[in-house]
Nucleic acid binder design. Structure first.
Lengths: 136, 136
DNA sequence: TTGTATCGTTTGACAAGTCAACGATTGATA
DNA sequence: TATCAATCGTTGACTTGTCAAACGATACAA
């Protein structure tokens, strides 16, 4: 396994990422990152940006900017934590719940991944990625 | 397999891409994309940007910009095709060959992927990605 | 020969990520 | 208690990708 073969593999991962992310956005109307972010916030009810950062492994700056956009679109509300004014508390709005539920219902079977891979293959892929990601 | 599970999987792919790309760059000194680009050009001897585009599935604009940087660093030379002045012919320099060979020798076993996955697992991952990528 | 379509590349405007520097709070300590 | 350090978030500069518009060849038709 020389460097050239490794780079081919890594480049395949890059292409896969680009393909799936853009098809996800095309099909749902949400960017993958913002969809995840809304789900993370929704599942916690209320949470600080630090929690989002730890959960999503994404840079603080990116979070601030995504939340600003989500706020403008009326998907989240932010307010300072009264007990600790450094923290911003985020929660999703009714509108977000509705729109998320909406695309949940719309896009059941037509996703790129489901077309390309069987359930077992997806399971397998997920396991490999988890192993890869856990090695920092 | 609902939308939430799909987005989790896709987000794993995104994280994997970010991890492997940045560790590749840290370890070799080349960005993954530019390394691939140099290899593609090197393997063909001389080629037009259109060929790079088809091989790498990357936008034209990105190619132009990467090549500009590689040219500034002395890794590639570009000249118009004398038979068709629309095309730019690209080839790698001596310096590129040397530096590529250099990091080839340096970085044999310490790559993230090799630490995380066995040879069979890598094989398997590659197959799954290929299947995924071939579905557009 | 003169449009006109097409090709290959370049450029500009945007999206989404990084890092580093900053600012406001809070907590710890001398 | 005054100061100093750590925490949380924001902002600015940069990278690397996209798409769309523009550009200079070239090819082909009338």
């Amino acid at each position: 396994m020389d460097l050239r073969e490794i780079s081919r593999l890594l480049y395949q991962i890059k292409l896969a990422e680009q393909n799936v992310a853009s098809s996800f956005e095309r099909e749902t109307g949400f960017s993958l990152t913002r969809y995840e972010m809304l789900q993370v916030v929704k599942e916690r009810g209320v949470c600080s940006q630090r929690v989002i950062k730890e959960e999503m492994k994404i840079d603080n700056a990116a979070i601030t900017r995504h939340l600003k956009i989500l706020e403008e679109k009326g998907y989240v509300v932010r307010e300072r934590n009264a007990e600790n004014h450094r923290e911003m508390f985020v929660r999703v709005t009714e509108k977000a719940e509705q729109d998320l539920g909406h695309c949940e219902r719309d896009e059941q079977t037509n996703h790129l991944v489901l077309q390309a891979l069987s359930a077992e293959e997806i399971q397998h892929l997920s396991g490999l990625l988890q192993k890869l990601n856990s090695h920092t």
